[in-house]
Every structure is written in C-alpha cells, then in structure tokens.
Design a binder for these strands. Structure first.
Lengths: 200, 200, 200, 200
DNA sequence: AATGAATGAGCGTTCATTCAT
DNA sequence: GATGAATGAACGCTCATTCAT
C-alpha cells in the first residue's frame, strides 16, 4: 500500500512577501516541468529556478507532489472559469464552440505543461475539491448537451465524458506535434464534436 | 543537454534460450509497469520479477529506457499487424470499424500498460524504426480514408492524425475509468470517427 | 571537535511578562518531550506549542540545548529541595525513606520526562552550577549515610553514588514499564537501599 | 501515529564477501556510536567509517534504526549466552555472582556502547525475537531466585525485574563515570543484590 | 554467460537558526 | 521586543549501473 502523499499547501502565507514567494515557486515549478519534463522536475531545481531556498519551498508545500497538485488546481480553476463563461451562451452551437475554444485556447497557451499536468492528474489523489471541480466541468457540458435536439441518444454524462476525451485527445496530440494554429485546430475539434453529436 | 540514451537491445540473441530470457524480462517489465506504475518501475524490480539477475538484464538491455522502448516496439508491431489485417477489407466502413476494433481491443487487453507506454512514447527518442512504424499506421489509415466518399475535405494525413487522436483519447479515457465493455466503447468510438468523417 | 553550545538562558527577564513567557516555553518543551520523545523535540514545535513565535523563543534561549538544560536545572532544583527537606529528619531510616519517597514521587509525577532528562543530563555539558547541584545532592545523602551505624564499610561518597544509581535504575525501569503504584515501588526501593546498607 | 520502521536485515548475504561486509558495517556502527554518540550516529558516517559505500549499507539494512537493532540483538545474544552459562551453577550465590559478573563484564567491555544500546532498546519496537530474548533472561534469573531460601517474599518476576534494574542502574552509572575497576564494581553490585534479597 | 555485491550521484525532506520588517 | 519568512547544511534513502568472481 503506497502511502498517500499530502497534497495540500502547508500554510497560507500571512504576509504579502510570503504570498509572492508562493507565486514565484509555482511559476518556477511550471517552467521546470515545461523545460525538463517529469524527469527533470525536482524540488531542488524548482527552488533554484525560483531563486528561493529549498527550505522556503517546503514552508509552503509539504512535498513534491503538492507542487504539482497546486499547479493542477490553479490550472483547473482557470479552465473552469472560461468554460463556465461559454456555457451560458443561449445558442447551443455557440455554447459548444465557446467551450471548445476555451479548451483549445487553454491548451495552446502552454501545451507541454497542460499535457504533463493531465498525466499527473490521473496519478495523484487530488481529493474532493478537485473531483468537485471536474464534476462541475462535466456538469456544465452535460447541461448544454441536454439542450441538444435531436438528443444524442446517449446518456448526457456518457456523451460529456466522450467529448472531453475527444477534445483532450485531439488537443494533447496537437501539443505533442507542436501545432500552434489555434483556429485550424478549433475547426477540426468542432468537426469531431459536432459529428459525434450528429449536429450537421 | 541530456545525452540521448541507447535504446536498442544489446545483442540479438542467437540461442533459443537467450531469446526466451529476453521475452521473460519484457513480460516482467510489463507487469511491473502495470502493477506499480512508472514510479515503481525500476530495473532491480524487473530483474527480480523475471527471476533473473540484474547483471543478466543488463546483458540484454543497455539501460532502463531500452526496456521501455522494447515494450513500445513490440506493442506497436502487434497493433500494426491487426490494423493491417482490417485495412484490406473491401468495404470502407468495415475497414474503419475493423481498425477501430483493433485499437479498442488492443487497448482493453492491457489498458494500464497501453496508457503508460503511450506516455513514454513521447518522451523517448525511439529512432527511425519506430517512426517508420507510426508512419505505416498513419499511411494504412490514410489509404482507407482516401477511399471515403464524399471526401472529408481535409488532407488525409490530417484526418488520419485526428482520428488517431480521437481514438486514443477515448480509449485512454476508458482505460482511466476502468471501462471494460468493449462493444459499447467500440460503438461510441465509431460514432465519433464516422461523425468526424461525415459518414452518417 | 564539536563546539560546546551555550546552555545558559539568554537574559534574565526583568519584567514579569517575560518571566511568564519563559515559563510557558519551558512547559511547552516538557510536554513536547513527553508526547513526542527526543525525535519529535524540535524548536519549532516547542514555539508553536507555547503559542510563541520561533523568534521569541530564541530571544530567551540561545539554542535548542539551552531549553533542555533549563528543564534539567529546574527539575534538579525541585528534587534537591524535596530531598533536603527529608534529609534533616532526625531518624536515619526516616531520613532515607523520605529521600527515597522524594525521588520516587518526583519520578512518578512525570516519568517519561524524568527519564529523558536523565539521558540528556549525560550528554550536555551543564557547567558548574549543575555539577554543584549534583554535588549537593550527593552530599546531602552522604551526610545521612555518615550517621548510619554500623557504617557501610564503604566510603560514603561511593555508597551515595551507588544508592543514587540503584534508585534511579529502579525508578527508570518502573517508568519504562509504566508502573504507577508509588507505595509498592517505594517499598521495593527501600528494600534495595536498606539491603545495600545492611540495615535490616 | 509514527510509522514503525523496519528493523529486520534486508537480505542475508549469500557470498562470503557479503557476510564480511555486514560485519564491517556493524562494527563501524558500534564505533561511531561510541565515538560520537547518538547525535553523530548517521548512516553516511557509518558507511564511511566502514569503508563501504552508502549503497552497500542499504543493501543489508533497510534503515538507520535497523543498524541499531542489529547491534542490540547481537549484544543481547552474547549477554544471554554468558548469563545462561552462569545460571546453571549449583550454588545459588555462585549462580547469582556469575550472572552479575557476566553483566558487569559485558558492560565494562564497551561501556558507552552498552549504555546507548540500552537507551535505544526502549525506543525501538524490536519485535518478538528480542522480547523473547529478554524473557529468557528474566526467566533465567527467576529460576535462580526461585531456589533462594528464605524466599524473597516477592513474586520472583518482580524480584527479577528489580534486580535487573539495580544491576543496570549501577552498571550504567559506572559507565557514565568511566569506572573501570571490574572487581570493585562487582563487589558492590553483589552487595546490592544480595542485600535486596536478604542474603547476608 | 551469469551472478549479485558494490557503487555513488542525486533527490526529498527536516529543522536549528538568522534577520528584515 | 515580537514576528514569521527565509535560509541551507545535513541527512535518510533509492536505484541505475558497473564489475569482480
């Protein structure tokens, strides 16, 4: 039985200086992940890159995985906000397009990072808060799908899960190939999603 | 700059016994990956699981990554063979369905392993042989797509790449959720692929 | 050669509030030692337990060992006072019994703490003040022993040292076994001491 | 809840060279403990002193505490053997004297080490094997005590425990004071034990 | 060829201590 | 004085890899 690591931040910074340190550490962690991959992602490298002592890193994060978890959480929040903004559009196609655009834009902003965080998301026990966030995303999409006519002929949850899988698959693949043309990618993802849903 | 590791098997075993040893080591590596994930995947564990000394392992493989590379290559060959068999079917839909079935079946046989190897495939410089194999796969699919009427309106290479991404995304996601119902998954993947291609 | 640490309190607090803070810190240190043992005894934990910043702790104590030393000194003073009170009893047996009772009572009050401080006492260079206190204890006992008739046939200093060793050995052992019955322990220690002295 | 460390040796050396390495490591551990105390006792120091890489140390011992545990076990076996040899003497006083001599001799051979191991023995969860060994020691002594006439008026187990405590207390105290005169110490310990038992 | 003992660079983490605010 | 953010030396430990037997 692998002991589950503590993934929650260690203490909330009370002073402004401390909050700034936390931000610097997280940004350094992201950059290390992007530049050196999972293999080169270690706490000493992050601290050095952040221009901070290793001790400071451990003041705010109880371990290496907590760093990754914090990145994932922050990333998820951004995406969730952008998706939610799109989901409220009245027209169904516009809502779906907007959500896809959010996902595509999010991915193309930092493709390597996004892909690595996706991988880690499966490995880490991120706890209720993150599950809830994932649930909200699914639920946002499910609400939009419920309005589709004709209905997909599948449970909306299943459809939502599949669409996520499709979008993530295409997006990650684009990231791997260093594809940077957002509009073209967007068009093809829409084609796949609308095709899946039978929306001609 | 990290020096690129040697990923080729150390020697082609001439004797039957040696070939058998290689097979045993690879199977042990696969099982360790499945059971303990990337974190628990280390050469000592593989050797022990294979019932072979660590020294022997290094006689056949020049390093840890070479083990992973060998797994990826073997895996790819199986998939390529199965895809090729489906690709020659005369009917386009049957050919596509067959290829999807090959991919789905391949994934569901060892879902965890397949997913981990996918991840590693991006990290390792697998060399020409593997690139060629990937190329063959793409080309197999492209040939089938070229026969689609009406044509997709996209370069067949792009379409082929997208379809791979869609299938892999859905399949990996299913693996993550431990979905085991192959026919249901198959149906949904077909829906996505045919939808993407505009085949109603 | 390890540099000898400063074990003296940093400043004699002039204000009442400061003296109170010192007391709180020491009590926190004692509780941490009892609850978490030597391994869990660290300055940050003590400060937190005391409800004081780590910086404040270092205002009153120059280092970790100084904390331990202060505990040892305070403990020793209490014991010395109680022993001295017993030593002046006119009857020899009553005096010895009283001193044993003081030691037993002292130990059973906080058995874990007492044992850990004993161990630390050997490790730390506590300086003249503490040596003098130990000397006073020995001398108290020696004075009583000098009145024993028939004499033990041993130098009173040796006898005093042995009796301390016997009492501490039995008492620590009782602490280890979580023996809490003071009267029974007292009786057995008396038996050992009187037996050693040939007092039937 | 502190996780209980693994205290058992990691693998039994199959080759003669390995067995020798284990012995060298243990002797180095003992010397480091003696020379630098608990504070200076760390795995890197032990490995260096043993002239062995840190990796080799961890091939045979799963952690720092396992080293200490091995020392305690080996030490205990020696003592048990010597005590058992004395316990079979027909005359009671001779048996007791012999057992005391074994304890005194054992302690004076490596006084500092013996004392530190005593301390650690209380801290480590040494498992059944060691408990059994301690039980055998107690039982050896209890058997001898059962033959004492007049009986001590105490349960033999209690008497045995007390005698252990007395002997250990006196012996450790002698060690702390660097007392090296075995016969004199022996005589005083006998005086205490026989006095406790009422054997004039 | 096979074994497994040995190596050591490298990483995660702790905690006593300092010092700017 | 008091605070708590920051520091970094020091450890515990792993695991890919080598090499004597």
């Amino acid at each position: 039985m692998a002991k589950t690591p503590d993934l929650n931040p260690r203490k909330s910074p009370r002073q402004a200086r401390a909050a700034e340190t936390v931000r610097i550490i997280l940004e350094a962690a992201a950059r290390i992940l992007e530049a050196r991959g999972l293999d080169g992602f270690n706490t000493n490298a992050v601290a050095e890159r952040a221009g901070v002592s290793i001790g400071s890193l451990y003041q705010y994060f109880p371990g290496k995985d907590a760093l990754t978890a914090a990145l994932i959480r922050a990333d998820g929040e951004v995406l969730l906000r952008e998706m939610a903004a799109a989901a409220i559009l009245p027209q169904i196609r516009a809502a779906l397009s907007g959500m896809i655009a959010a996902a595509v834009g999010h991915q193309l902003r930092r493709p390597v990072l996004a892909r690595l965080l996706d991988i880690q998301e499966n490995r880490l026990p991120l706890g209720e808060a993150q599950e809830e966030k994932a649930g909200e995303l699914q639920s946002l999409l499910a609400q939009v799908l419920a309005r589709v006519d004709p209905p997909a002929g599948l449970p909306v949850e299943t459809a939502a899960a599949d669409i996520f899988a499709i979008v993530r698959g295409m997006i990650d693949h684009a990231g791997e190939r260093q594809e940077l043309d957002a509009p073209a990618l967007q068009a093809r993802v829409e084609r796949a999603v609308f095709g899946y849903l039978g929306l001609t």
